[in-house]
Amino acid sequence: MSFALPGLLWQLLFFVFPMMFLIALSFWLVKNYRMVPGFESVNWVKMYTRGYFWDAYFYTLMLAAISTVVTSILAFPCAYALAFKASPTVRRWAMFLLIIPFFTSYLVRAYSWQIFLGNEGIFNGLFSVFGFGPYKMLHTMFGTMVGYLTLCLPLVVVLQLLSLANVDKNLVEAAWNLGCGRVRTIFQVIVPLAKVGLVVAATFCFILSFGDFVSPYYLGGSKPPTLSILIIDTTKSGQQWPRAAVVAITMIVTLMIVAFSAVTYAYARRTRQ
């Protein structure tokens, strides 16, 4: 049981307090631009009765869900190819290449996409050669999605790859030998075997997209704002961190529910087969 200790101690020391602070903060008041400790429900009432809060909430949920589905689907063929078609050397290099982007700031990468997506950007330049466009891509939901993909795709491919690489090749082989088609093998053998990893990857993708403010801000033009942008906006109204805390707690609870359902689903015992 001593293995439980390091994590427990660290999180108790350095995470539980900030969380408690956050919860307490949501009941504080702001007077003359200073946060005053207190116990008032006004922040909760105020945020929860605002239409824009719920608009932002459902919009963010939707964006994160789309991002999760799109990223998972786009990542899978890549992870599949690397897991089943590539040599171990190629796979290892691919893995490192996928982790490399993290070492070039996400901010820089998001900023870079502006050059591609702008009205007079690289993509529209290319389109105009063929007589198309210009298409509005920057400051749209499409822009936000490109940003989310930039953030999540490498991570999701890595996590999917980790789980696909451990799928027992003998089982796949057996399915083939029994005359199972390639597509059927993927969906009926490989995906169920790698379910845990695929779900974990999707969950991280959802969490990252849900909380990210860089993409909806720099590539989506904050139109409409997501919850993380709402947090930043709220703090700009004269130290309204308590109200930002309300938004934050709502986000945490939502993500907790999503994450726990996902993990429960992922690790649920397979009853069939």
Binding site: L12, F14, M19, F21, L22, I231, I252
Partner: peptide, 24 residues
């Protein structure tokens, strides 16, 4: 509870996490 504690941190929006960590 233990697992919750272990998995919760990424769900906290970073901006507010920053202020809360600084407060601690």
């Amino acid at each position: 509870f233990y697992l919750g504690l272990a998995l919760l941190p990424p769900t906290v929006p970073l901006v507010i996490m920053g202020l809360a960590m600084l407060a601690l």
